[in-house]
Write a protein that binds this DNA or RNA. Sequence first.
DNA 1: TTGTTACCTTGATCTGCATCAATAAATGAA
DNA 2: TTCATTTATTGATGCAGATCAAGGTAACAA
Lengths: 239, 239
Amino acid sequence: MNPNSCGHYDPSAKDMQQLCISLVPIFNHLQPEEMKEIAATTKSARYERNGQIYGAGDRSAHLYIVHRGRVKLYRLSESGKEQLIRILEPGDFMGELALFSETVLDCYAVAMEKTELCTIQRSDLQEILMKYPAISLKIMEEFSRRLEQTEKQVSSLTSADAEGRIAAYLVQLAKKVDAHVHTITLPMTKKDLASYLGTTPETLSRKLAEFQERGFIEQTRQRDIRVLNIEALSAMRTK
Amino acid sequence: MNPNSCGHYDPSAKDMQQLCISLVPIFNHLQPEEMKEIAATTKSARYERNGQIYGAGDRSAHLYIVHRGRVKLYRLSESGKEQLIRILEPGDFMGELALFSETVLDCYAVAMEKTELCTIQRSDLQEILMKYPAISLKIMEEFSRRLEQTEKQVSSLTSADAEGRIAAYLVQLAKKVDAHVHTITLPMTKKDLASYLGTTPETLSRKLAEFQERGFIEQTRQRDIRVLNIEALSAMRTK
DNA sequence: TTGTTACCTTGATCTGCATCAATAAATGAA
DNA sequence: TTCATTTATTGATGCAGATCAAGGTAACAA
């Protein structure tokens, strides 16, 4: 699917496009002229909240790089249930499968808020990669990070129960923020989080209530949680 | 871990090493001289059945390419249970995480049979990739394939029950072999397969027995299964 | 060959959590 | 602001499958 058919292409914002290139990790190590050259091959696209970037069944041959905003990637199961794959933040990219194999996309990409993407066409990117091999190294770095992350997700699904997975997720989030504050904000709805963790909203809700009961956490607002006892949560992975 | 400390390094088999390079998909598209150049930087290592190639906690900076034999990659859960990540066959590679990030390995690699690997050092590979950018494209292709595969595994763990996952696995195997024969051989023990599918050997055994009861399959020898009704199995994914 | 070990199978039990249902609360649009 | 829709919570119920146990079988080493 051409991004222009959903989003808005703004041909006048050349500087902004270059900015996009200079912001994302896979390109921001290049020389200014190199960036300029690449920027010339990219297009920019904007999406409103809930705007669909692509859907299952599309045949895209683009690499999408998130410049601003957030994108939700999900699959639909047989029964129509939404399974969250991951959330992309600025600097992340998607669509790479279509770049290397001639496959049909099997998941949906939707903007979670006002979002701006850079897109690069398959053929253009391949030329760029042949010319600037260092970019490939960056992309592979990102690939391996994501592969590691996804493999760990498989591990946690097979080796921990729902309670353990939820606890581990909170610990992981808490460790990212300031070590003393430990107030975290869930990056998505609890419904989506439940899907991501391989459980249901009901179970997630119950487990969080139980953690609070036991004094491990305190739920302040809708998606804000203060972690009070990170050790107890850490000790929770079972099996 | 240096492969030479576990396996046997055979410095006289230069031709064999070159052969190794010429056999794996990420290198076999190169010109003969290019292959020769790369072969000069690789080492060969042999492992006996059950020989450990590396273990969790090791700090490897090698890319391992399977030349002959099969390698089992697994993680140990908190409780010491083995979780199978994947099985590598000739042409597959592993250890790529260590090539791009300075992380400690968190899984085990063990030869399932007499196995021969090529190893390339991190620094050597990075030089090669900068010199021959086409290799990076091949590696990224493989990365994206694996990422897709792993993401699908996550999907199946969250969206299908054990019965559905087992059925889907059989279908997938059956589709790989000759369409008319439909006799498949499990590539691993049922214990490992259960781990891979996120269930227990007991459940796997029971479900296979049930499938046989219902006439969908026929279990011949230990790991041989004749698929009699692939449609019924396909229709089994639930949720 | 024999012994040893690991693997597989079947039975009985028990529990974690999905599911269905019914409010309540929050969010975004108008 | 108000209304409509999505999201979150809490209760009651049922079942798939994990776990424990024990006997049978295949694989491998000596």
